[in-house]
Design a protein around this nucleic acid. Structure first.
Length: 305
DNA sequence: ACCCAGGCATTGG
DNA sequence: CCAATGCATGGG
C-alpha cells in the first residue's frame, strides 16, 4: 500500500464541511462516502485501480485549501493526477458561486439561505452511471428508504478495499450490475421495475466505448432528450443527472414533490402549487437554477431552529 | 392498519 | 391526449 498527499485550492468561497456533508446527507456515512472528524473519505475506482482519498480542510471558507491523502496499490504519477482531478470534481471545487450570490442579492429569502450556507458547492457523482442509478433508486420513495436501498446496493455490489482494517466501498461498476440477475437486485429492496431499469442503464453504459459518458459533450436539451429514451428515465431523473453528474448550472427538476413543497413554503406561504407555477417562478434564477434548487433544499432540510 | 414518500411506465377512457 | 394505477418498503 502506497501513500501520497496532494493539495487542492477550491474556488472561494468554499465551505468544506457543508460541501462534503452534502455527500453524506450530513451523517457520518452514506454508501460510498463518509465524513468523520473533519475527514471526508471516498474510495476512488480509477479504471479498476482502487484508491482511497481522505480529504481534510487546512484553510478556511475564504481561503480554502484541502489536503488530500491518497492510499492504494498502484499510485504512479498518472493515477495521482487522475485521483486529484476526480476529488476536485466530487467536491465541485471549481464552481464559481459569486455570480449566483450576486444575482439573488435582492431576494431576501434566498439571500438569507446563501448566507446560512455560504460556501456550499454542489457535489458531483463520479460518473453518469452512478447519478442515473442513484436517481432511479430514489424515485418516489422517501429519502430514508432510499438510504437503506443505496447502502445495500453499494455494500453488496461495490468494489471494496481494506485500509487499516476498515472496509471502504466504491460505487458498483456497470459490468457488475449488468451481469447480475434481476432477482438479485430485487433482493436489495428494489422493485422489479427499478431492478430492470438499473439493469438497462448498466447495459447502456457498457454499449460503446464511453457509453453514457459521451453525454458530457451534449448541451442540456440534447442530454435530456437522449437520456429520457432509456426506460425508467423521465424528465426528473434527467434534470438530476444534469445537476449531479454533469455539473450543469441551470437544471430544474420539475416533477419533484419536494421542490414544489419547498418553493411553496418559501415563496407561496405554503399554498399548494403545481409544476407550471414552479417553472414560472423559478425562471427568475436562470441561468443558475441548479444552485437555487440546491440551496432551497438545503434550507428545508436544515430549517432554522 | 393505514398513507405517504425528492417518479415512471402502462393502461383505460 | 389526460387521469388513474401499481410499484417496494420504512416511518408517521
Amino acid at each position: 500500500m502506497y501513500q501520497r498527499t496532494v493539495t487542492l485550492e477550491p474556488v472561494a468561497p468554499f465551505s468544506f464541511d457543508l460541501t462534503a456533508g452534502y455527500h453524506t446527507y450530513y451523517q457520518a456515512r452514506y454508501g460510498s462516502d463518509s465524513l468523520e472528524e473533519g475527514v471526508y473519505r471516498r474510495l476512488l475506482d480509477l479504471d479498476g485501480n482502487l484508491v482511497l482519498a481522505s480529504v481534510s480542510s487546512v484553510g478556511n471558507v475564504e481561503e480554502p485549501r484541502l489536503e488530500v491523502r491518497l492510499q492504494g496499490q498502484g499510485l504512479d504519477d498518472e493515477s495521482v493526477a487522475k485521483a486529484t482531478t476526480l476529488v476536485s470534481w466530487l467536491l465541485g471545487a471549481e464552481q464559481e458561486l459569486r455570480p449566483f450570490y450576486d444575482m439573488v442579492s435582492g431576494d431576501e429569502t434566498m439571500s438569507e439561505t446563501t448566507r446560512r450556507f455560504h460556501g456550499l458547492h454542489l457535489p458531483h457523482t463520479a460518473s453518469v452511471f452512478e447519478a442515473l442509478v442513484l436517481a432511479i433508486l430514489g424515485q418516489q420513495i422517501s429519502t430514508h428508504v432510499a438510504r437503506v436501498v443505496r447502502t445495500l446496493l453499494i455494500e453488496t455490489c461495490g468494489p471494496h478495499l481494506d485500509v487499516d482494517g476498515v472496509l471502504y466501498y466504491a460505487f458498483p461498476r456497470p459490468e457488475t450490475l449488468a451481469a447480475m440477475p434481476v432477482e438479485e437486485l430485487r433482493g436489495m429492496k428494489l422493485s422489479w421495475r427499478k431492478a430492470e431499469y438499473i439493469r438497462g442503464i448498466a447495459l447502456a453504459s457498457l454499449e460503446e466505448l464511453d457509453g453514457l459518458e459521451s453525454l458530457r459533450g451534449l448541451d442540456d436539451q440534447e442530454v435530456v432528450s437522449e437520456v429520457t429514451r432509456l426506460r425508467g428515465v423521465g424528465n426528473w431523473t434527467a434534470q438530476w443527472l444534469l445537476v449531479r453528474a454533469l455539473g450543469r448550472p441551470d437544471a430544474l427538476p420539475l416533477g419533484d414533490l419536494a421542490l414544489r413543497r419547498t418553493v411553496s413554503a418559501l415563496y407561496f406561504q405554503g399554498e399548494p402549487i403545481d409544476d407550471a407555477q414552479v417553472e414560472e417562478f423559478c425562471a427568475r434564477w436562470s441561468p443558475w437554477r441548479t444552485y437555487a434548487t440546491v440551496y432551497m433544499f438545503a434550507a428545508m432540510r436544515n430549517p432554522m431552529g
